[in-house]
Amino acid sequence: MDVAVLTARPGDPTIDPKFFGPDGRLIAPDALEELDWSIYDSQLTMYLSVFPPINDAIRSYGRIFHDIVVED
């Protein structure tokens, strides 16, 4: 989310307009209704898919986070 908020703008075909606030910025995930979170996450993933280095960094962070936090 922090990455997408810097570049995503209303009118982007991969992100539903309802996920933008009146100021034209993406709304924060904690402001979403629970039913919208999955859609929001999927659309941000699709939006970021055209930025391979960013996707690689996000996946790397996810793996490291999982290794640190999740107990086997």
Rank of each mutant, 00 (worst) to 15 (best):
E34N: 11
L48K: 12
L35N: 12
D41R: 14
L26V: 03
L6T: 12
R63L: 11
D41M: 08
S60P: 02
Y40F: 12
P10K: 15
R63F: 11
N55I: 15
D72K: 15
D2N: 06
G24Y: 01
W37K: 09
D30M: 06
V70P: 02
P52M: 04
F20M: 01
T45E: 08
P53A: 01
L6Q: 07
T14L: 11
E71L: 14
D12Q: 04
L44A: 01
G62P: 03
P22F: 12
G21I: 01
F51N: 10
I54A: 10
G62M: 07
P53I: 04
D67P: 02
D12A: 06
F20Y: 11
F19K: 03
F51A: 10
I54H: 10
I39V: 14
D16T: 15
F19P: 00
D12F: 12
M1H: 10
Q43W: 09
V69N: 09
R9C: 04
W37Y: 06
D67M: 11
Q43E: 08
E33I: 14
W37P: 00
L26I: 03
G11P: 03
L6R: 08
E34H: 11
Y40R: 03
A28E: 04
K18M: 05
V3H: 05
A28S: 05
L48A: 09
W37N: 04
S42V: 05
R63V: 15
D72R: 15
F20K: 00
S38R: 09
